[in-house]
Deep mutational scan, measured.
Amino acid sequence: QEELVKAFKALLKEEKFSSQGEIVAALQEQGFDNINQSKVSRMLTKFGAVRTRNAKMEMVYCLPAELGV
């Protein structure tokens, strides 16, 4: 569980995922086979993730800066 949270936060820091499906796929690539869209959705809510525009003006998920991840 701890490893999943770390990987999840690291992915969001990249600010390149525009959908929950993309986050699920990226986590599965890292070996988290039991991850699915509903789990990702709950984690996004739990950590207060928001959708914002990145440098390329794409809408992407990211974590609020005050979490200091």
Rank of each mutant, 00 (worst) to 15 (best):
L63D: 03
V40D: 01
V40I: 08
E22L: 05
E22C: 03
K46R: 11
I23N: 01
V50G: 07
M59D: 06
R51H: 08
K16N: 06
E22Y: 03
Q37A: 12
L27F: 01
F32I: 04
I23F: 09
E22F: 04
K39E: 14
K56Q: 13
K56F: 09
I35A: 06
M57L: 12
I23G: 01
V40M: 03
M43P: 00
Q1A: 10
V40Q: 00
A65D: 13
S38Y: 15
A7P: 00
N54K: 02
V24I: 08
R53I: 15
S41G: 10
K56Y: 09
V50Q: 08
G48H: 09
S41A: 14
L11F: 05
E22P: 03
V40P: 00
R53W: 11
G21F: 12
G68Q: 11
N36C: 04
A7C: 10
L11I: 09
V60E: 02
S38K: 13
A65K: 13
G31D: 02
L44E: 01
K13F: 08
S38E: 12
K39C: 08
A10N: 10
A49E: 02
G48C: 04
A49K: 02
L63S: 03
A55L: 09
A49C: 04
Q37Y: 08
Q20P: 13
L67H: 13
C62K: 11
E29F: 08
T52K: 15
L27T: 00
L4E: 04
T52P: 02
A55D: 14
A65N: 13
P64H: 04
G48A: 04
E66Y: 07
Q28T: 09
A26Y: 11
E29D: 11
S41R: 14
E66V: 05
L4Y: 04
R53P: 13
T45H: 13
A25F: 09
T45K: 13
I23D: 00
V50E: 07
A10V: 07
L27W: 01
Q37W: 07
N54L: 03
A49L: 02
N34M: 09
T45F: 08
D33Q: 12
R51Q: 10
A25E: 09
L11R: 01
V5K: 09
L27Q: 00
S18N: 07
A25D: 09
F17R: 03
N36D: 11
V50A: 07
A55E: 15
R51E: 04
R42K: 12
V5D: 14
A25K: 12
L44P: 00
L12R: 00
L27Y: 01
L27C: 02
F32T: 00
Y61W: 15
E2K: 09
F17I: 04
